[in-house]
Design a protein around this nucleic acid. Sequence first.
DNA 1: ATCCCGAGGG
DNA 2: CCCTCTGGAT
Length: 215
Amino acid sequence: MKRADIAPFLTAISANNPTPQTELLYSTPFSLLVAVVLSAQTTDAAVNKVTPALFAEAPTPQTMAALGAARIGHHIRTIGLWQTKAKNVAALAQLLVERHNGVVPADREALEALPGVGRKTANVVLNEIFGQATMAVDTHIFRLGNRTGLAPGATVRAVEDGLVTRIPKSMLRPAHHWLILHGRYLCKARKPECWRCPGAQFCTFTPKTPAPDAL
DNA sequence: ATCCCGAGGG
DNA sequence: CCCTCTGGAT
């Protein structure tokens, strides 16, 4: 049984979902990696508030390792899960120095061996920094892939494989941002706003939620 | 109240 | 598979 093509869905939702410029805010592989680790279960706004001062004081793995978990914690104490993240970032920086000469590895196994880096974070780094054909499946994209029928799967890996297989390699990076924003602001877990969804005609979700009655 | 641009541990 | 860690958004 043939599945619907993802391309028209992506084209439809791309119109109202601009691509964020993470690469401009975090210009080095190390700063992007740390920023992504800090972003787990936390909004970008909260992370972006603490990272400037943190990276001003410790822009490299060497300086970050020297900073230590306690002072890293002081910098990031306003974001969620900050105690765990401070510990992880300190250990992560230390491991980068010890094992990888202070260079962020372009290798999945090496990345996932770093504390605070799971599959989703590794996929973001591999895609954003090294241009590899990966799709970082978070809860939004997992839900959207299943709900729309465009990339159904019982596990994160199944959805990930479906998306990577069906989306052209050159489109994976913008598609990642469009799908996440679409899932967060429109195809929401609670009240998906199908009546204003530009991709509704390519989606198998039923029943599509109707527009609330006009006032 | 509930969920999340998760990961680690049991 | 389950749970916990946490602040913020809705």
